[in-house]
Design a protein around this nucleic acid. Structure first.
Length: 277
DNA sequence: AAACATTCCTGCACGC
DNA sequence: TGCGTGCAGGAATGTT
């Protein structure tokens, strides 16, 4: 699931229900994620109050009392769901509910991740920006840092495909395979275009399309392409608004040309050969 | 049964 | 030669 819009949707939803709640206890059923959950994780979060929720790139940051923050990454298949007291017991997924946080109102925050590519890590709040996961992340795409001059600067001399560059977290934060495809369609730029050969006008189109697409996706609570669910277990609605992703063989909504799927940087890449140049 | 929403690592090629 | 950078490829893994 999880690119920037999904994580941002998750942050907003959880903010309503878990800020101010205290973690009574944490239960780790399976520590082997992308990297193993630290041995002291359980004791370090126990008794802490959730003071705030932030997002950086595709990471959810859970600020805890006592000065530490929990970095959460959902990998390919992760989800964090808030389960109501009355449903919590019966909803246990013994196979993939890897970490379970019991909150002080009898509800539970559950980290579920079938493929276990995700990450759960505690970091002293002051060290967040310099921690391995975040230190090299580029500017947020919704914000002034991601502008035309910046994109032109970052792409000059690069012969990688523009789509690959857009998905490079060091260039810009939070864009993955689905939204890169949608952004490039909106911008009218082929995913295979060499980044270094972007014209200024094309860079403007991309920089303009990026926050637009991401905002629309956030407003729809993200995309459920396969199995993503939000913090209340609901699918996102943006899937029905995808213009190219997953639509190979179907007609372009703008010009009826058949949408193609080609491999760019080892990732499936959908585009309209007529609308995108 | 091939494909897959993410990140991280290795190794090669190239240029200074 | 040595070093840094860019880029391709592959691995991690379970589900549909």
């Amino acid at each position: 699931m999880p690119e920037l819009p999904e994580v941002e949707s998750l942050r907003r939803l959880l903010a309503r229900s878990v800020i101010g709640r205290t973690i009574v206890s944490a239960q780790i059923n399976e520590p082997r994620l992308r990297r193993a959950v630290a041995p002291d994780f359980r004791s370090a979060v126990g008794g802490r109050t959730i003071e705030g929720l932030r997002r950086r790139a595709k990471y959810l940051i859970v600020d805890l009392s006592g000065g530490s923050s929990m970095l959460v990454h959902l990998g390919m298949s992760g989800s964090l769901t808030h389960r109501d007291a009355r449903f919590a017991p019966g909803q246990f997924d013994s196979r993939h509910d890897h970490v379970c946080f019991q909150l002080d109102d009898q509800s539970a925050l559950v980290y579920n991740d079938p493929r276990r590519f995700g990450l759960l890590k505690l970091v002293p709040r002051g060290e967040l920006d310099s921690t391995a996961e975040l230190k090299a992340i580029g500017p947020e795409p919704i914000g002034e840092g991601f502008n035309v001059n910046y994109l032109m600067d970052k792409t000059r001399g690069r012969r990688a495909a523009i789509k690959t560059v857009l998905m490079d977290q060091r260039v810009v934060a939070g864009i993955g395979n689905i939204y890169a495809a949608e952004i490039l369609f909106r911008a009218g730029v082929k995913p295979t275009r060499r980044a270094g050969r972007l014209t200024r006008l094309e860079a403007e189109q991309i920089v303009g399309a990026t926050p637009a697409i991401l905002r629309e996706a956030i407003d729809s609570r993200g995309t459920t392409f396969r199995s993503y669910r939000d913090s209340r277990g609901r699918p996102g609605k943006f899937a029905s608004r995808l213009k190219v992703y997953g639509r190979a063989g179907e007609p372009c909504y703008a010009c009826s040309t058949t949408i193609r799927n080609t491999v760019v940087g080892q990732r499936a890449s959908f585009y309209c050969p007529h609308c995108q140049r």
